[in-house]
Computed example of a mutant assay.
Amino acid sequence: MRSTGLEGRSVVVTGAASGIGRAAALQFALAGADVVVADLDRAGAGQTVKQIENDGGSAIGVIGELSEQAVVDEVVATALDAFGALDVLVNNAGIMDRMSALADTEDAEWERVIRVNLTAPFLLTRAALPHMLAAGRGAIVFTAAEAGLRGSAAGAACTAAKHGIVGLVKSLAVMYRSRGIRANAIAPGSTATGITFDVDARAHGPGVIGPGLGLSDRIAFPEEQAAALVFLASDAARNINGAVLPVDNGWCAV
């Protein structure tokens, strides 16, 4: 089996209690990495850690809201204390909005979605960068979304947040490519995860974009999205930087 270059690396995966994040944490561990499982869901994170350990891997959980600086600091400190480094950061945690059109987007919906989907990855990346820069290397991978590629895959809040993620990826790639840092993202299409949708089907936003969501005619497994995350973090992708990889069965090509 060809080495991925992930053996012995320290990897942080957010949103790792379920779905794409759990699948990614498991795959990184199978590739030989030590994994920090970060999530708000204590029980789910514990299950991920236990599964990794049962498979012979090494993992530790950090529980908390990743848009809070104290939790971000704990995640980074845990990686450094437990594994001696922070080599890979996977900013995967995210939530969906209510598909609200801008005029119908309430402050609470906007602030929650932006905080979880954009501010939290910003805070964690900012905290991880000094350690990666000191080491002269690092891979940062984000889970964006179809909403980061188009205006018809989510409401105003999630669309803005995921477009922001794409902007962060490109900015990171330009700013730090000469210092050994790579930043990339995947843009998943429909995937069987635990993310729930609180949508008022009678509202304007869902009525406009709902029909287009059916263009993705295949629902992916979380493991398929995770494989793309692991690839982008691996040495096989050493010359890929600033890219957003659709993993959507061609949805973005329609």
Rank of each mutant, 00 (worst) to 15 (best):
M1E: 14
S3N: 13
G5T: 13
L6W: 04
E7T: 15
R9D: 05
V11N: 04
T14H: 01
G15D: 01
A17G: 15
S18W: 07
G19Q: 03
I20G: 01
R22D: 08
R22S: 12
A24V: 13
A25V: 13
A29C: 12
L30P: 00
L30S: 15
A33Y: 03
V35K: 10
V36P: 07
V37C: 10
A38F: 08
L40K: 02
A43W: 00
A43H: 12
G46Y: 02
T48E: 08
T48H: 10
V49W: 02
V49E: 07
Q51G: 00
Q51C: 03
I52G: 11
N54T: 14
D55I: 02
G56S: 01
G57N: 10
G57C: 08
G57T: 08
V71Q: 03
V71H: 00
V72G: 04
V72Y: 03
V75Q: 04
A77V: 06
A77Y: 04
A79C: 09
A79Y: 14
F83K: 10
F83W: 11
A85L: 12
A85Y: 03
A85F: 01
L86M: 07
L86I: 15
V88L: 07
L89V: 13
V90K: 00
V90C: 09
N91P: 06
N92Y: 07
G94Q: 04
G94V: 01
I95Y: 04
M96R: 04
D97G: 15
D97F: 02
D97H: 09
R98Q: 14
T105W: 01
E109K: 03
V113F: 05
V113W: 05
I114T: 07
R115A: 14
V116D: 03
L118W: 02
L118V: 02
A120D: 00
A120N: 05
P121N: 08
L124D: 04
L124V: 12
L124W: 05
T125R: 06
H131W: 10
M132S: 01
M132I: 13
M132H: 05
L133W: 03
L133C: 10
A135M: 13
R137K: 11
G138P: 04
I140F: 04
A145E: 05
A147G: 11
L149K: 06
R150L: 14
G151P: 02
G155V: 07
A156G: 09
A156E: 13
C158L: 04
A160H: 04
G167S: 11
S171W: 10
L172W: 03
V174I: 14
Y176N: 11
G180Q: 06
I181E: 07
I181N: 08
I181Q: 09
A183T: 09
P188Q: 10
A192T: 03
G194H: 09
I195Y: 00
F197M: 11
F197P: 02
A201Y: 00
A203T: 05
G205L: 10
G205T: 12
P206I: 05
P206S: 06
G207R: 12
G207S: 08
G207N: 14
G212P: 02
G212Y: 14
G214F: 13
L215Q: 12
P222Y: 08
E223K: 06
Q225R: 00
A227F: 14
A228C: 14
F231A: 09
L232R: 05
S234N: 08
N239W: 13
I240M: 13
I240S: 09
G242S: 11
D248Q: 02
W251F: 14
